[in-house]
Amino acid sequence: MLRFLAFGILLFSAFAASLQAETRRQVPAYTLDIAAGLYFPDDTNWANYYGSNNLPEAGISFAYRVFSVLDIGSSVSFGRDSGSGILPLSQLPSGKVSYDILPLEFYAVLRAQFSQKQWIVPYAGGGYSRFFYRQLIEGKTYARGSVNGMHLKAGLQFLLDPLDVKSAMRIYQNYGVINSYLVFEGKITRAQTHAPVVDLGGRSYRLGIKFEY
């Protein structure tokens, strides 16, 4: 593990040094995206048990740029909601329940980017989701599992570099970040358990920041 870490640091140092030496590259190869927002489950009864129809979530994505218009990547998010449980026979809300979600996604995204200086980049894509979940009653795990699903997403990237060119250059020199974007993204997820059939899908809206390396 230590060897692997040392190798990684060495590789990163060499990569950063080479970037510092050369002029600013035009085509990024990787993107890192950190975002947070709200997840709106499709379940219309959600608010009855959890107080509101959404739960906060945050996630991180890493993607490889195959072409300037195509990214393939993976993301992982985490969301938690707390509310009351249910008495199944009387259908009354009762007890304290927590619900955790952790969708792991693999996706491809098409980007309408025609220039590195393009201020706004729309994108759309989708892919496979493995939707992990966990339910706790009074802090004790009651059920956990995961289910296959899919997702579609679309968003807009707003280039931040022109707002402060000097900072953008410094970030590039120090960290190798070629472009920085403010990202607003909407996503639809479909994931369904089989026995019993429960739709875990929903919509999410996130605001985040994307770095292109």
């Binding site: 379940d43 009864n45 449980g85 026979l89 007890g95 329940v97 599992g145």
Partner: peptide
């Protein structure tokens, strides 16, 4: 009335 155990909503299977 009938006592019963609390379950979380929604009804998700345990793995």
């Amino acid at each position: 009335a009938m006592p019963e155990a609390v379950v979380p909503y929604p009804f998700l299977p345990d793995e």
